[in-house]
Amino acid sequence: MWKTVPFVTKSISSSSILLAASSLIQQQIRTTYILKRKFPPQLHKKGSPPKKLRSRHYIYDLVEDTNTKKQEDIDVILTTFVEGLGNSGEKIKVKPQFAYNSLLLPGLAVYACPENLEKYKDTLCNKESVEYSSPNALPTIKTLSRITLSVVMNKDHPWVLKPWHVKTSFRKSGYVVPDDAITLPEKPITGPDMGLENKEFYVTVTINNKEKVNVRCRLHHWSTDIIDRIPYTPYFWEEDTEPIYPEFKEVLETLPKKVTKSVNKN
């Protein structure tokens, strides 16, 4: 087959239609295969014409298929704030397919070419244009606003709710929230009070001293003695309840309710 290639190309070059490609849509496709001859042809004699290639000389080993090669990450400059990635004007490194489909096509970013770098260099320096304190602030706000935090307090020992109680509850549920980021409602919550059991209140969490988010909390009483302990209610966040104080109602109504993803409830 390979031996016929020169003849075929000769016939193509004679018919000019195929080569006059100016009217066709030209799209770049990458089909480079790097090959190596399995049986390299021998050197020819000095001054004599090159030796004829035999069929075995057209057998190749594949060295590299550039189509399946992993492409390197590319730099793009964000033109707006993108959740989890960064603020506008920030140069980030992302996978090329993700960059093309999710950032460049929707117009959220531009290629980090020298012209664009020059064009967007002032955007980041301008601190006023920074929407969020960090790229992950918005996802954290979203997560915190839809949870129902269970705050477990003692049933026998007197207490007044303090930020460190809420911080501990956050840590138990898998959220890092420092003491100084928690603002409790002004009206103090004291206990133990079984009238407050399974009732709701809210706390305000400040992320990076900038973004504020209200978090729905539910108070539960816990006794060390297993006989006095109130049994755990599965999916307690799905049951409707009242706020601890009527003043909380306004804020609590604005917060979305936690939705259970799993269907199988037993």
């Binding site: 304190s133 790229p135 992950n136 954290t140 959220y175 890092v176 420092p178 980021a181 969490v205």
Partner: peptide, 10 residues
Amino acid sequence: DPIDNVYPMK
């Protein structure tokens, strides 16, 4: 690595 002072651990 976490970059904020408030974050979900997972």
